[in-house]
């Protein structure tokens, strides 16, 4: 399980406090007003933001000061999930090893991942030759081969249309079920949260609240969430 133990993140005058636990295999939506610190929280877990105080633990391993690549974390960013000058297969291969010389076994893993996300035979294409949805699938395939127990999503599908976004979220849910990964996903849309998250972490007023069940929270939101949802 993921434990944020007395975690304190500061950036200039902004400060965020988090003291919570996420169970292994849980799918958690991170919600809250703009500027409340959702991205900061996710980035701290991924290792991109310095921790002012407190600890980040995964199954009692202290990750607080580990390098991003050394954490049991895979992440999908808002954009820039693929290197534009590398082929889809190469991009996915980087999830296995940070050099592009793959063994036969590794290559077949890349091919399987491509097939799993519905991009069979598109490995040779460049990202620019893919549609938005296909690019998202390619990024997911990379996450799949990375095979990390924690998957962080920083609104990677925000630019997709509603139908496509729903499709991608379903795919993410299916993949996390298959791999047993713990999922943390930033979203603005309550229906996204209902669709795939068991729990919600509310980030508001300088505080990341412990996860609570999605449906009861959204049905009966506390004032901070109420103000946000409108």
């Amino acid at each position: 399980m993921l434990v944020l133990d007395g975690l304190r993140l500061t950036r200039g005058t902004f400060a965020l406090q988090a003291d919570l636990t996420v169970q292994t295999g849980a799918r958690v939506a991170v919600m809250g007003p703009s500027g409340a610190g959702k991205s900061t929280l996710i980035e701290a877990i991924a290792g991109f933001t310095d921790v002012t105080d407190g600890r980040i633990l995964w199954d009692s391993h202290d990750l607080t000061h580990a390098a991003p690549g050394a954490r049991p974390v895979a992440m999908l960013f808002q954009d820039g999930n693929l290197f534009p000058h590398l082929s889809v297969a190469q991009n996915i291969g980087l999830g296995l090893r940070p050099v592009l010389k793959l063994t036969g076994a590794e290559q077949s893993r890349v091919a399987q991942a491509l097939a799993r996300v519905g991009l069979d035979g598109m490995g040779a294409r460049l990202p620019a030759e893919l549609s938005g949805g296909q690019a998202s699938r390619a990024a997911l395939a990379r996450v799949l081969v990375q095979d990390r127990p924690i998957l962080l999503l920083d609104e990677p599908f925000a630019a997709l249309g509603p139908a496509l976004k729903a499709e991608m979220l379903d795919l993410v849910r299916d993949l996390s079920l298959e791999t047993g990964a713990t999922l943390l996903m930033i979203t603005h849309d309550p229906s996204d949260a209902r669709r795939m998250a068991d729990q919600v972490i509310l980030v508001a007023e300088g505080q990341a609240h412990p996860p609570t069940e999605t449906a009861p929270l959204l049905d009966n939101p506390p004032p901070a969430l109420q103000a946000y949802l409108g």
Binding site: A46, G47, F48, A67, P68, G69, V73, M75, G95, P98
Partner: peptide, 10 residues
């Protein structure tokens, strides 16, 4: 940079 770091490309 973030993508590279998360992929341990250093």
């Amino acid at each position: 940079a973030r993508l590279a770091l998360s992929l341990n490309m250093q």
